[in-house]
């Protein structure tokens, strides 16, 4: 796997500080246990497809896990199963050692499409969970305003979601999920719809929130840099059917900052992820890949009118 000419260190090599951190992390109690989770779908024509198969992993308290994989590897299926929005064909899901079925407030979820309630103001959106729990309205409002302050939206507490930008909406969604004091926060490509700059800002925000709140985060992404920047450990899935390919312990020390994007540990991890997600093409698929990379386009411009 390692190219001999590469000056990069092994992605598995951890500095003593990082190794100590991981040792401490693994001593913490397990929050989520996934045992042999499998989900098969029956298609309209009666054939079965396996979306994910025999997924096993555990997350410890206050760990930040990213789930990474090529498209079609069942990332979204997995997180929907964890959230209880879908039922597994087989396998078990344990939260704090107890088996869970169906959705519940102890597993908060942040969706890519924001899914804020458009008829509620920011405060009312964040109050939703506590109200459902039976908290009285004044208390829920007080709590909600604290969460809104945490995500830096106090000025917009009385705005409606359609008055907010994408990044702000997603911050409200995070606050809304956290207001339930979930044991685990599931995030399904939450920043996928944001522009690059907002996205970088949101990643920073999320790390700050995670640092200050007692919550375990499970974060789905298809962006390699995002995964390395955020995660303690990265669960890499492979497609058809979705299975665990590797569980990578990110050797990049914390606290993280965007400058680390060019550190040796970061680049080494990135190279490994790249190899896993975009494996070298076998010879048979090679001609196909070339065909898609260079489009068979005929020249439609005048000669001499060249752009590169």
């Amino acid at each position: 796997m390692n190219t001999s000419a590469s000056p990069l260190p092994d992605y598995r090599a951890q500095s003593p500080a990082v190794a100590a951190r991981f040792a401490k992390l693994k001593e913490r109690p397990v929050v989520l246990t996934v045992e042999n989770l499998t989900r098969r779908f029956t298609k309209a024509d009666g054939t079965e497809t396996t979306a994910i198969e025999n997924i096993n992993f555990v997350t410890h308290r206050r760990e930040f896990v990213c789930i990474l994989g090529p498209s079609g590897c069942g990332k979204s299926t997995l997180i929907r199963l964890l959230a209880g929005l879908d039922t597994p064909t087989s396998g078990r899901l344990l939260l704090d050692g107890k088996e869970v079925h169906g959705p519940g407030p102890e597993r908060g979820m942040v969706f890519q499409g924001y899914t804020l309630f458009p008829w509620k103001t920011v405060t009312q959106n964040v109050m939703f969970g506590p109200i459902m729990r039976g908290t009285d309205s004044d208390e829920a409002r007080r709590e909600a305003l604290q969460w809104i302050e945490l995500v830096g939206l106090s000025k917009f507490a009385d705005a409606y979601p359609n008055q907010l930008s994408g990044g702000m909406k997603q911050r409200v969604a995070i606050a809304r999920a956290l207001a339930n004091n979930p044991r685990i926060l599931l995030m399904d490509e939450p920043f996928g719809a944001l522009d690059a700059q907002t996205r970088a800002q949101m990643q920073k925000h999320l790390l700050q929130i995670w640092k200050n709140v007692d919550v375990t985060i499970l974060f789905i992404t298809h962006d390699l840099d995002e995964a390395i920047y955020l995660a303690d450990r990265i669960l890499v899935l492979k497609a058809n059917p979705g299975r665990v390919d590797e569980l990578i312990e990110v050797p990049v020390p914390r606290p993280r900052s965007p400058e680390q994007f060019f550190s040796a540990e970061f680049l080494a991890t990135r190279a490994r992820l790249d190899a896993l997600i975009h494996p070298p093409q076998p010879a048979s698929a090679l001609s196909d890949a070339i065909a898609t990379e260079n489009l068979p386009i005929i020249r439609l411009t005048q000669s001499g009118d060249d752009v590169e």
């Binding site: 209880g84 979820m109 969706f111 459902m132 339930n180």
Partner: peptide
């Protein structure tokens, strides 16, 4: 998606109708 979001926030059963679907 709104229904799913509400479910992950602890809303279930007929309350989904009252608190999400109708509004």
């Amino acid at each position: 998606a709104l229904l799913e979001a509400a479910q992950t926030l602890g809303c279930r059963g007929f309350r989904l109708v009252l608190h999400v679907i109708v509004p």
